[in-house]
Amino acid sequence: MNRDPSPFRTASTASTATSPTPKYANLTASTNLRYSLTRKSIYDRHLNRTKTSELSKSAFAFLFGEMVQYAQKKVYGVQDLEKKLNLHGYAVGQRFLELLLWRDGRTAKRETRILGILQFISHQLYRAIFQKQADTLEKVRENEDEYMISDNDPVVNTYISVPKEMSQLNCGAFIAGIIEAVLDGHCFPAKVTAHTAPNEMWPGRTVFLIKFEPEVLEREALRVGS
């Protein structure tokens, strides 16, 4: 089989591409991503339409893998890459929080306490994204302003094996970004980072370390006093 396309062949395919039959042109116009066959755009659909729908884990793994590779092209080190993934997650989190609260409707509540917002993240948010709760929620004993949420097997890391020379990296930084956006959205500014913390049962266990800004603790102290 001759793999090299002959000039004649490329010329002939090009000519068919520039002059498509009217039927073919009609088909492409009606079935692009934004408009379905019923001529309704995605903005015409109800927001709750995708509330319970599931998505293929493989498709997500490929998309996320591609995202990691794309982020990797423009960075200088592991920390830079994690920051980039965190930013991607932040954009998702900002939008997702809005959607989540809208879906709660009248029962939606604005969390004002640290414990409340952390429980919101490890229960409601986690369940909405991953259909499970986060595995643990703990306070760091040494530091007043640090909390940990752990996930035994983060969905984003299922198929990812980090090479040895990048052992510091955890692609859970993406989820950390989502958490950070949700905290920011509730006026709890914080830094969230993802760390690998394996145990015998769960080799991919990831801990999200949440470090609140000092003003959050100040406000919390005022609430306790009142």
Binding site: S58, V68, Y159, I160
Partner: peptide, 23 residues
């Protein structure tokens, strides 16, 4: 297909060094 091809750190056609695949 799962643990090698879906790993963003694997370069296609290159030797496989994937901890998840080994495990």
């Amino acid at each position: 297909a799962d643990y090698v091809m879906k790993n963003p750190f694997y370069q296609i056609e290159m030797p496989i060094r994937s901890e998840g695949f080994d495990r």
